[in-house]
Design a binder for these strands. Structure first.
Lengths: 268, 268
DNA sequence: CCTTGTGAAGGAGTTCACAGCA
DNA sequence: TGCTGTGAACTCCTTCACAAGG
């Protein structure tokens, strides 16, 4: 997950597990592709493959939405597209504001994936006066001074922060004060928000670090020994096959101290 | 999660849970900030607050790495920075290639968060001949024809895909064939890779859709009854009955039927 | 005392496997 | 017959609460 959660301590809300919600967009994308190819129905097996999950999980996910399938047949593509869209709230218009129009912000503004899902970029905001008035993705960048007014006039409830880390919390506070209740944060910093506000984060460097962790392990395994033949583990798409990743050499319980490692960067 | 998991279902590796690995970069960032302020030690409570998690979770996470703290005192900041860096494999150099230098790819190339964590952009690759030779983030963009050579000569094991969805799988296949074993995918598509290759994905539109889901719920709650001031009814907090959508209390299985919902903002 | 480290309890999410229905 | 929908088992993660130890 490149993303972060935030709210929902104890609520049950309506019962759809968070993990399921996170997969609905995936199903929707796969279904949309099928719809464009005019495929009328699809089985859980096929759809699961297209979405990169396993079929039992998919069926369980759909069961939280209701019984939208037909036994012996599968799911009606168009119907499911509609139901999932509705569940996700994509049948309505979501005006969003984007704050911080640097490299990343501009790239996001140009990203086409928004509009196609009911999201409409209502305004681009930047604190740099030099940016004000410039056209990015066909829109004039507005100055941060007008943030509150922009949020209010456009009825914005979702904000995207793509500012430098140092400015993120302040921007966040202003967005929240202006009425925004959902924030997508690209700045590499932890945002604190009051209850009732959702924050999700996307952090590129965190994703790479997680990959590096596994990459390092692979390298270590390979070097460590030649063992560990096919076991059970797969990568992305299904695959009951094997993954390598090695098992801990020791069962050692005394983990204290570095494992005889190079102290290298130890503090002064 | 904006991200996707991928491998390791059954392996125990060295025992560090995936959820913990995903948080290590967060701790590292917080620790780095403390280190820059020359703070010598930190308690689990303080560090947890800075990282946005709760302290019990943080202590449990650290317990998987070893006993690096001192009871009654806390953790030595510099020492922890080093241990986590080592655990994540950041004490070594990771050359990465970025494929697809469009708006997003260029923004990523300019992103400073990579270098600071041991990641080095070894090459920028694009399939468009018009891009070849152009300078982006101080590097000359190379043509996709040379992908294999580039990966091989630079010993690249991590690739970043920022191409359009249609080209992603093909690029992915070539990267993998060339020896890349970890991929960070920004293209809105599911990649299939052989066992042993890790894929993580970042999808902007998915993140927004998840926010929209919760946003929609909030709106429904508020409308349902007389608001909900900044009390305890907000978002995650309890919400007695779920007004929206059916809930089929009894073991009843007849959830069928489309929306038993409030039409609310339904489009035409 | 104060804070870590951790067994144990509690939840959440996933997978299994099969009953149920078209 | 074929595929959905789902109880139940299982695995993974989180939280609690307290013993251990500086």
């Amino acid at each position: 997950m490149a993303t972060g959660r935030t709210h929902r301590p104890a609520t049950r809300s309506r019962g759809i597990p968070e993990a399921t919600v996170a997969r609905l967009p995936l199903y929707l994308r796969a279904l949309t592709a099928l719809s464009e190819r005019s495929v009328p129905t699809v089985s859980s097996e096929e759809l699961a493959a297209a979405a990169g999950v396993n079929s039992a999980k998919l069926r369980k996910d759909f069961s939280y939405l209701g019984s939208y399938g037909t036994r012996g047949v599968g799911y009606d593509v168009e119907y499911l597209v509609y139901q999932i869209s509705r569940e996700l709230g994509l049948t309505q218009d979501w005006p969003i504001v984007m704050v911080g129009i640097g490299n990343l912000g501009a790239a996001l503004a140009n990203y086409g994936g928004f509009a196609s899902r009911g999201f409409r970029v209502a305004a681009l905001i930047d604190a740099d006066p030099a940016m004000t008035g410039k056209s990015v993705a066909g829109m004039a960048v507005q100055h941060a001074d007008d943030l509150e007014k922009i949020v209010d006039e456009n009825g914005v409830s979702i904000g995207v922060i793509a500012t430098p880390a140092g400015a993120a919390q302040q921007v966040c506070d202003r967005l929240v004060a202006a009425g925004v209740t959902s924030i997508l944060n690209f700045a590499p910093t932890v945002l604190s928000v009051p209850d009732g506000v959702d924050v999700r984060k996307v952090d590129l460097s965190i994703e790479l670090q997680i990959l590096a962790f596994h990459e390092q392990r692979k390298a270590g395994d390979a070097a460590d020994e030649g063992e560990v033949p096919p076991a059970a583990g797969g990568v992305g798409v299904e695959g009951p096959a094997a993954k390598v990743t090695k098992a801990a050499p020791s069962g050692g319980s005394d983990r204290k101290g570095p494992d005889g490692d190079v102290p290298a960067v130890m503090p002064a």
